[in-house]
Design a protein around this nucleic acid. Structure first.
Lengths: 234, 234
DNA sequence: GGTACGATAGAACAGCGTTCGATAGAGATG
DNA sequence: CATCTCTATCGAACGCTGTTCTATCGTACC
């Protein structure tokens, strides 16, 4: 474990001088630029201008690196979420916070896979969970209902974001194929299915084709919140 | 691509003789017995009594292997789901199907990570999606609402199951530490948090401690379904 | 100056997915 | 019967990964 890693990097060229901060920042940069598969200890070491083994002084394993990197950016999200005005309606507040979290994960799809995986090292994630829960304290619910409500909401947020953000088949990452065309191909396949065996797929294929991810998420969230409101008003 | 892989395995000992079926069955067995990290081409080859490269005749990559293995067991789940009586209430039907799917993923946590990842090779997953959608055709909804509703439900089911099923920290896999004790440790940490900064966490920590995963899922599902019922009755 | 320790790093290890090239066997063809 | 073809198999190798071992540099303290 690193302590007193303050002293700035002094001019030396031979040996690199890191810090927890720089390690996490560069790790996040790699994740952002080229996805999870690009974050390797070797790539990270090269970026830091040092050796591979040095990283292990700050972090015990790749899992911990991912947990800490995740919590590092969740810190920023937490700040955004804390800046939101509570307003009159607790459920509206919950909704606003959820949308903020969703946006953050949508920009960084890898976040969803590690978020809240280990609250021991993910202090910010825990604080965020707390923030998400606080509005429910203003609702007429049992403790169990509050617990379940917040669990349900985080599931919807993270689940949606992860689903939407799973690494696209490379061709769209390259920009060779647009997302719309990608969706269109699936839609085309679906349209060719037997209309008798697949009435539902045919019913919704036009909605699927070129659909908006954010709108889809908002719909899912609103169903859950509507259910919650019903429960609180009962 | 394999064709006409019917002919039974003839008595030869020197060379192994596989089939798509046997490859997928053994792959699933490995996943079930020791989780995703245990499914390697080498381990699978050994189980099949053959060489590593042979597997590549049936499958182009590990991703495809996982997709096919997933769809293989989804086939069974689909049969269970098709056996469910529709009943009078479409939403109850939806609920029953969701619970069946959830149970299946809970037993095989790895399922959630690959389910519906590529409907091209996952024909059963697509059929399951269709089945989940059919009850919504009996509800008074727009096509878009139907699409969003089914998306929301699959997100809740898969999201919950994935969340609950992420590989536990080895110690509970070994049985050295029970799940309750594992939860209890987290609960203990949470209880030590400042009561002023973490009012919500304190409120729900007792619910978290020793909570039942299935109940938690059912609560999330019911919130969504309540919202859906509201929408359909409007 | 010597010593303890925080911090760095190169080299090696075991394991992974994947590819290559060779080849065994069954069925068709002459 | 010999040969040819195509399906299916496999051992060995490649490049990459996370991780560990061991050696060392450089600073702070006595």
């Amino acid at each position: 474990m690193p302590r007193h890693q303050n002293r700035a990097a002094a001019g030396g060229r031979r040996r690199a001088s890191h810090s927890m901060e720089s390690v996490l920042t560069e790790a996040v940069a790699l994740l952002d630029e080229a996805g999870p598969s690009a974050l390797t200890f070797r790539a990270l070491a090269q970026r830091l201008g040092g050796g591979v083994a040095s990283i292990y002084w700050y972090v015990a394993s790749k899992d911990e690196l991912l947990d800490r990197a995740t919590d590092h950016v969740i810190g920023g999200v937490l700040a955004e979420i804390e800046a939101i005005e509570p307003g009159d309606d607790p459920i509206d507040h919950l909704r606003a916070m959820s949308l903020t979290l969703f946006d953050a994960i949508l920009v960084r799809p890898w976040l969803g896979n590690y978020f809240m995986r280990n609250t021991d090292v993910q202090g910010n994630a825990l604080r965020l969970y707390e923030k998400l829960g606080q509005p429910t304290l203003r609702l007429k619910l049992t403790a169990r209902q509050r617990f379940h409500a917040v669990s349900a909401i985080t599931t919807v947020v993270v689940g949606s974001a992860v689903d939407l953000g799973q690494e696209p088949p490379q061709e769209v990452l390259d920009g060779a194929v647009g997302r719309d065309e990608f969706l269109g191909r699936f839609a085309a396949t679906w349209r060719e299915l037997d209309a008798v065996d697949f009435p539902f797929v045919h019913e919704i294929v036009d909605e699927f084709d070129g659909h908006d991810d954010i709108e889809q998420f908002r719909a899912a969230l609103d169903l859950t919140l509507a259910g919650l409101r019903l429960q609180a008003d009962a």
